[in-house]
Write a protein that binds this DNA or RNA. Structure first.
Length: 628
DNA sequence: GCCGTTTTCGGCCCGACTGTTTTCAGTCG
């Protein structure tokens, strides 16, 4: 079965090739948009295209695909063709007409389809090597719009591309953004400063960082921004916008420490993974009176923003970053003609004027949020009262049971589950059955004398490649909490992965499916099981699917969380604590939950102690906590 | 190529910055 990612990849390739061929730009946009939608879709389109799936099984596949907003008859047919034959005729034809190397050129900053097509048609450039050649021999200067400065910028962009500059993970980007915002708030004249963009939406990776300021002294703001510590290069500097490349701190890459070891051999940690990394940071200077509309404009995804503007137009209004204005179809933008906006000062005000409830930033992805009637209640960091996945020095953590308990108490938690690794995780010093019994007894003993928090004895038990668990049922039955997680064989085929995880979810003693796919963001993709089947089984067996809060993992990912939430599945947000500072990762897990529309009541970590403990006990056929 | 509480045809979001073009095209978000 073709995955959504594969389908999205094919569609976006069609868009790219159409663009290079100078085809109708709206066809291009349609394919791009469809690709984005497919990628973010919680349901598996391949399954639908193949005529599968349950709820509307009798409806023709084509019709069901077309029910997805953004997919029409043509694209539906292409998806079906892709699913049934493994290829798309149109894509093959397009590929035959365009040199394969042009795709890479489009990834170079500042090079768009027009310029790449120009290079190809006028200078015979078909790949990166060809581009370097025409730059070196100077022939590129003979092309239209290619002067010395343009070529110099291009050189720079090629060098950056060669460094493999890629997206930053949420946990790497957020500290940079917070530092920039804090620094800008100290600048003379600055009234407000916030970061926006995909970072404010809490996406798992970001391509750049957008920072907004409202100030009485735009010049001072621009100067201060371009002179911030860590700025390597000023890319552009204008009255309302500046762009720089900024170094990313070494200490953002904590993954190299604890946590990595559990992955086993062959996944060598890279302590200097973040060394030399940089990120583009854009500063936007906006009028204070437009703060709300500007923040909205620079926070919403492209599709979300388009959706809002279309909505505005239907209401006889026009929306831009300066505000929501009456639409008079004048050529000059309303703000330049002194027209007073209907709303602009705060996001709340603008949403209200659009007839919408306030939409939290994490939801602004055009995944149905513009149809909301009221602001949904989403899980917050302050709601989290329990950590159900933590390691001590008995396996690969740093803390003793007591220190771990105190760290959890300091966060205001009522419950902490100690879940060290099981025996197969040899590199993580997994516990033999005998050690586990001793350890569980030690946890319970500690629980007796530490007041103010309930300590639970548990295990993060390996789900072996065939879906069996790493301890036998007698031993598992003595535990308060069983987190079952895959750690090895993470590249097995989807069908095998599905069967493997289903077996774990169906196991009567499993409470939580830990980091279900085992992916590491930007490093390895992990398992690709049929998530719909996993979710359905988890609902049936009252197993919680974990959002592992480490920013390297964020596993479940946001779109799967959404599917799980829609299905009524329980979710656990766990920090997978190995060191005291790992509790700080909670906010990344919460952001991911919010992106999946997760309400607090569906997240077991928010439950009151009694309710949480009752759920844990109920999974083991009424066995009472305290062991045998 | 998609879409429709003003449309099944004719639209499709909006603005800033850069470089080179003396009035704008291309790119980006």
């Amino acid at each position: 079965m073709a995955s959504n990612a594969e389908i999205a990849g094919a569609l976006s390739q069609i868009a790219q090739l159409l663009e290079l061929l100078g085809e109708d730009k709206f066809r291009v946009i349609s394919h791009q948009k469809a690709a984005r939608i497919v990628e973010g879709l919680p349901l598996e389109l391949g399954q639908i295209a193949a005529g599968g799936g349950t709820p509307e099984g009798l409806k023709p596949a084509r019709q069901r695909l077309m029910d997805v907003d953004g997919i029409g008859p043509k694209i539906a047919d292409k998806i079906i063709e892709f699913e049934t034959t493994g290829r798309i005729g149109e894509l093959d034809e397009l590929r035959a007409r365009v040199p394969a190397g042009l795709g890479e050129l489009l990834q170079i900053g500042g090079l768009g389809p027009k310029t790449v097509a120009l290079l190809w048609k006028e200078a015979g450039v078909t790949d990166l090597a060809g581009l370097k050649r025409v730059i070196d021999d100077g022939s590129i200067l003979g092309l239209p719009r290619m002067g010395e400065k343009a070529v110099e910028k291009l050189r720079h962009a090629i060098a950056l591309h060669a460094e493999g500059q890629t997206r930053l993970r949420l946990g790497e980007a957020l500290p940079v953004a917070e530092r920039v915002v804090a620094a800008m708030r100290e600048v003379r004249g600055v009234k407000r400063a916030e970061f926006a963009g995909s970072l404010r939406r809490g996406r798992e990776t970001v391509g750049d960082i957008d920072v907004l300021v409202a100030t009485t002294d735009a010049h001072a703001a621009a100067e201060a921004f371009c002179g911030l510590p860590g700025v390597r290069q000023v890319l552009s500097k204008g009255e309302t916008r500046c762009s720089v490349r900024m170094s990313v701190d070494l200490d953002a890459g904590r993954w190299a420490g604890a946590g990595e070891k559990e992955e086993g051999a062959g996944e060598a940690p890279s302590p200097a993974a973040s060394a030399g990394k940089s990120v583009q940071v854009d500063l936007r200077v906006v009028p204070e009176a437009s703060w709300g509309s500007a923040l909205m404009y620079f926070t919403g995804s492209k599709d979300h923003n388009v959706r809002l503007r279309e909505r505005a137009l239907k209401m006889g209004l026009t929306l831009n970053d300066y505000g929501l204005f009456p639409n008079d179809d004048h050529e000059t933008p309303p703000q330049e003609r002194g027209i007073k906006p209907v709303a602009s000062r705060t996001e709340q005000e603008v949403f209200k004027a659009l007839g919408l409830p306030y939409i939290p930033p994490e939801l602004r992805e055009d995944r149905g949020e513009v149809a909301l009637k009221k602001t949904p209640t989403l899980v917050e960091v302050a709601d989290i009262r329990a950590e159900l996945h933590a390691h001590t020095a008995a396996s690969d953590g740093e803390l003793s049971i007591e220190d771990l308990a105190r760290a959890a108490m300091a966060r205001g938690f009522h419950t902490l589950a100690v879940t060290d690794h099981s025996k197969s995780s040899v590199i993580a010093n997994g516990l033999s059955p005998e050690r586990l019994r001793t350890h569980a007894a030690a946890v319970r003993a500690a629980g007796k004398h530490i007041k103010g928090i309930t300590l639970l004895a548990g295990s993060e038990v390996d789900i072996l490649a065939d879906g069996s668990l790493d301890y036998d049922d007698d031993l598992l039955g003595t535990l308060d909490v069983v987190v079952a997680s895959p750690h090895t064989a993470l590249s097995q085929a989807p069908e095998l992965a599905t069967r493997r995880l289903l077996r774990a979810v169906e196991h009567p003693m499993v409470h939580i499916l830990g980091h279900p796919t085992g992916r590491l963001i930007l490093r390895r993709s992990g398992l690709s099981p049929d998530m719909g089947a996993i979710i359905a089984a988890a609902v049936e067996h009252r197993v919680a699917l974990e959002i592992n809060a480490h920013w390297m993992r964020l596993d479940l990912r946001d779109t799967h969380v959404k599917a799980a939430v829609d299905a009524g599945c329980l979710i656990a947000i766990n920090c997978d604590v190995h060191a005291s500072s790992d509790f700080d990762n909670l906010r990344f897990g919460v952001l991911t939950g919010r992106r999946g529309w997760l309400p607090p009541e569906q997240c077991v970590n928010t439950w009151a102690a009694d309710r949480l403990h009752e759920w844990l006990r109920s999974k083991q056929g009424g066995r009472r906590r305290g062991g045998r």
